[in-house]
Design a protein around this nucleic acid. Sequence first.
DNA 1: TCTGGGGTCCTAGGACCC
DNA 2: TCTGGGGTCCTAGGACCC
Length: 512
Amino acid sequence: MTRIAHVDLDAMFAAVEQRDKVSLRGRPVIVGGVAGRGVVSTASYEARRFGARSAMPTAEARRRCPPGTAFLSPRFAAYRKTSEVVMALLAEVSPLVEQVSIDEAYLDLAAAGHHDLSVPGVTALAEQIRAAIAEATGGVTASIGVGSSKLVAKIGSDLHKPDGLTVAAPGEEQALLRPLPVTRLPGVGPATAERLRRATVHTIGDLARVDLADLIDWFGQAHGSGLFRLARADDTRPVVGEREAKSVSAEETFDVDLTDRARLNAEIDLLATRVGGRLRSGGLSARTITIKVRHHDFTTITRSATRAQPTDDPRLVAQFARRLLAEVDTSAGIRLLGVGATTLADFVQDDLFGTQTPTDDQPAAGDILAGVGPGGGAPGGVRPGEARSGEVGPGEAQSGGVEPGEARSGGIGPGEVGSSEVGPGDAVAGQPSPEPVQPSRPESASGGWRPGQDVHHDAHGAGWVWGSGRGRVTVRFEGPSTPPGPVHTFAVDDPALRPADPPDWRVVASVS
DNA sequence: TCTGGGGTCCTAGGACCC
DNA sequence: TCTGGGGTCCTAGGACCC
């Protein structure tokens, strides 16, 4: 049954620019990064004639394209608006639309219940959709593929681009795929194509003759069996509507490689602010913070740490990212920095982790948190409390003198003074912050683990441990910026004490 | 002027728990 | 108190997509 359609806007970014600016029509247009290290997002079909392609360095596209070619920075707001017009239109065709990207979507035509799903029926419907898109967008064209599966629909939409339509009749699928190069299959990128080439597998027909065991051997279970099935046009993936975001990230490639630590930290703060802001606007919070570092030679590493509790606070994201970066050798030059947030929790957490005073916090059942500032090597200012108290930013309202065993969080202990690279007030240097970051207030380091009470982490560059249950726990902290501290023993309700997230800390804990 | 930015999914090893 | 297997979580990296 020809029930699935794939709708793909043709060179959308460039098409929107040509629509909005008459002088660009008929001319080669490149949309993408126009600075030194930029790459092409979209090349208009006029520009493709000269060899310009998506993902090509813009410098290369400049070499290839003639004088008079327009090189434009993307205007995402305009593209988003056009995308919304198209998606709204598609939603009228079927209740089941899967938007894949800003310019692409699958439709399950059967979900509407009233469409004629014969080949002539879907052909007429697809032409109607194409005409409606062109009209509603002011001339941005779409190519559509229709077939029995996502695979066939997707390949079909590509087959007669731009402004084209392909309908694959039931039973024709394999014949359609057989002569095509394997690179047309979704999931076959440069690495897979190269491995297949070494096995003299060039077309999808070639691929269909390879043993499943070989494919799994070469590509692993998931990818191998996936290729096996796709080569046979065996694709039962459903069209799915809304999907939840799994990560939020921001990254930046610098015009010139950076080595200066202060500058790198400032960039981290910028990125963290973007990530935190998007978490907040999406009503999300994250437990895992990841940084990405691309070195001068393009080698790329990631470092991540998972927190005991989720956060959406840009300052906390920045602190974690800075601590992760502190363990990376940046002396040879950094080309790109990124900050990401994963393990997303889907709840609004203002009440839990907001920047309100920590005294509103309630303990998390069973959580034991033990923290210390690296400043003195001795655990300082640990107060009764729970996970949330650690989310308090530096210098925020502090409440001392809370008695052991009380549920109220005591806020920040003295331990955080000087305990991270984040100086007072610069946690999000130069960035708008929902809360002013005030200088940390130094306190005496007379604090320590207080036996018999719940303890929690501090907020600023400090480590903590948490657990639940019963027993006595011995804890010692050490880290690059902190010599091994004395051993502290205190009672908790659970021997299951575990180190949490401080990447530059080693929390050594044992239970007796 | 070699190689963006925002994502998803998979693999593999180690820790940890039962 | 010799050995092991399964499941889950965490981390790091890689391939791929638009």
